[in-house]
């Protein structure tokens, strides 16, 4: 044996490392243009989460704490609830129609980040599952 065989494939890690910025760019493009092209918060969030999973497939190290990801996901979920209450239900959008596009973009961004973080937490919990313990919720 000339050199040890490992599980990590050189081809996959190089190609996915090359693809990271394009995946991020596509994800944000799909999120931000969601209100007049196909796509939107959920689809873009899925692309952002697949960046996170690709990172695990290439380099399985637990260096991002999932409790922090989970906290951010909860924060964005709360903001998704707060934004319509502040902007939609008190008639602000109807009084100032130019805010409609901004409102839709804001909601798309919030939903995209919430979905991306949520799916990332799901995969993180699944990948680094060490049994039911005190940190398990």
């Amino acid at each position: 044996m000339s050199k040890p065989i490992t599980d990590e494939s050189q081809i996959i890690s190089v190609v996915i490392g090359f693809l990271y910025p394009f995946m991020l760019l596509l994800g944000f493009y799909v999120i931000i243009n969601g209100h007049y092209t196909p796509g939107g918060g959920f689809q873009g969030g899925g692309i952002l989460a697949s960046v996170f999973i690709a990172r695990y497939v290439v380099h399985p190290v637990e260096d991002i704490s999932d409790t922090r990801l989970h906290a951010f996901e909860r924060l964005f979920l709360a903001l998704i609830l707060v934004a319509p209450i502040l902007l939609l239900f008190n008639g602000l959008i109807y009084r100032y129609p130019f805010l409609q596009v901004h409102y839709l973009t804001l909601m798309d961004i919030l939903i995209g980040l919430q979905v991306g973080l949520g799916l990332a937490v799901v995969v993180d919990r699944f990948a680094f599952f060490k049994g039911v313990g005190p940190s398990w919720r």
Partner: peptide
């Protein structure tokens, strides 16, 4: 709209999730 959801979920996310499961 449905096509982009299928492409993202079906061939991106689910594939990577299966690969993760195989690795795990």
């Amino acid at each position: 709209e449905l096509a982009i959801a299928e492409a993202v979920m079906g061939s991106g996310l689910v594939t990577l999730l299966y690969l993760t499961a195989l690795k795990r």
